[in-house]
Amino acid sequence: MEIVLPRPAEEQALAHLQAAYPNEGGGFLLGHQQDGRVIVLDVIPVANVFSAEEQYHRYAMRPEDWMALEDQAEARGLTLVGYFHSHPDSPAVPSDYDRLHALPNFVYLIVQVDQGAVQAARAWILVEDRSRFEEQTLVRSDAGGSWQIH
């Protein structure tokens, strides 16, 4: 599946994750799914509520944040299509911890942030039987069109 990420949305997400370094940061991807593509139209950074001493390798958000943002997305005619989070000084590959907390049909955008600088962003979706993630094609887009980097 192609995940289309507009440049302004990506820049907003990456700026949030760099600011969160050396801790993990994250938030939601809003948009819609059509014709086998997920189109991201907005990103909403959400505070990391994991205990402070664990935030260097853990991210969590309050269920109330999901509830409020799902309602807001629907009011705008959008849906929650995924979430993004960082792996500080670690590859942009889902961990077992990620997999155990994941749902299918939802984009997991993982960003490697090394020494405060973004190194890689990769998109994943959990397979139906929950056994693993599959990497998706991430397509950056801007007003002039789009181009593929993976």
Binding site: G26, H57, Y59, D65, M67, S90, D98, H101
Partner: peptide
Amino acid sequence: LRIIPAIAGGMSF
């Protein structure tokens, strides 16, 4: 009722 997934993630260690 409403089902709300607890979003969480993190590195392996």
